[in-house]
């Protein structure tokens, strides 16, 4: 079997007495668009943060691009891209300055940085926004810039935590077009979302509830496992079950 993009075994994270993620075991193949679905507090963000080395797992293990996140988080960081829920770039820097900064931070040599930067700018159509400050951008453009900064170093695995929250439908569609494009180029994309139409676009999904995995498979399979005709039914059933 070839090396998985992400492989977790009994991955668990506690915050005090709260178990945010409970014994999660997953295997995600290279080039997959993999969705993490679940209501608020189901453990999606905690899972992503552990996989990115932002939170230490309490128990269990996770390999990202073949590297154990608990052992060598810094080596993992060179191979992944990450977009947090909240816009995490500098609002007092321009689009070009943000890109240049992250290019530098990811250690791209000067010449390669400029070339790669232009590629990313063309790919995300950022060319006319280069001199705008982060604070002047709309939600959709902020999200594209964030994606751009996360792509500069050609990550093997891309983690997107609710990337399209608060973004208009047209911008969302464009964003997903870019995601699909990246996946066909071989990048593994792991995305959390609340939107059903986005979940449908994922190759496979993991549905989380109360910190543990309750369904895994293609969108159709997941819907059936949770007991709904559609994914949306499944999600609502799940949320109601959670609220009880």
């Amino acid at each position: 079997m070839s090396q998985a993009a992400v492989e977790t075994r009994d991955l668990t994270r506690r915050f005090g007495t709260l178990v945010a993620v409970r014994q999660l075991t997953l295997r995600i193949e290279p080039g997959e668009v993999f969705g993490l679905l679940g209501p608020n507090g189901s453990g999606k963000t905690t899972t992503i943060r552990m996989l990115c080395g932002l939170l230490e797992p309490t128990t269990g293990s996770a390999l990202v691009a073949g590297i154990d996140v608990a052992v060598a988080p810094e080596q993992v960081k060179q191979r992944i891209g990450y977009m947090s829920q909240k816009f995490g770039l500098y609002e007092d820097l321009t689009v070009a300055e943000n890109l240049d900064f992250y290019g530098g931070i990811y250690g791209l040599p000067q010449a390669a940085r400029a070339a790669r930067s232009s590629e990313v700018i063309a790919f995300l159509e950022l060319d006319r926004r280069l001199d705008e400050l982060g604070s002047q951008l709309s939600g959709g453009w902020k999200q594209r810039l964030a994606l751009g900064c996360a792509l500069l170093h050609r990550p093997v695995v891309l983690f997107l935590d609710e990337p399209t929250a608060g973004v208009d439908p047209a911008a969302r569609r464009n964003f997903w077009r870019a995601i699909s494009e990246l996946a066909t180029q071989g990048t593994t994309v792991i995305v959390t979302t609340h939107y059903m139409d986005e979940a449908e676009r994922c190759g496979r999904l993991a549905m989380l509830s109360g910190g543990h995995l309750i369904a895994l498979g293609t969108p159709g399979e997941v819907a059936a496992q949770v007991g709904g005709r559609t994914l949306e039914d499944a999600f609502i059933i799940l949320q109601e079950r959670d609220e009880r």
Partner: peptide
Amino acid sequence: ERGTLEQLIVTPIT
């Protein structure tokens, strides 16, 4: 507080 640290510490900067 601004949320930019989270993005910064997922990079390999020492």
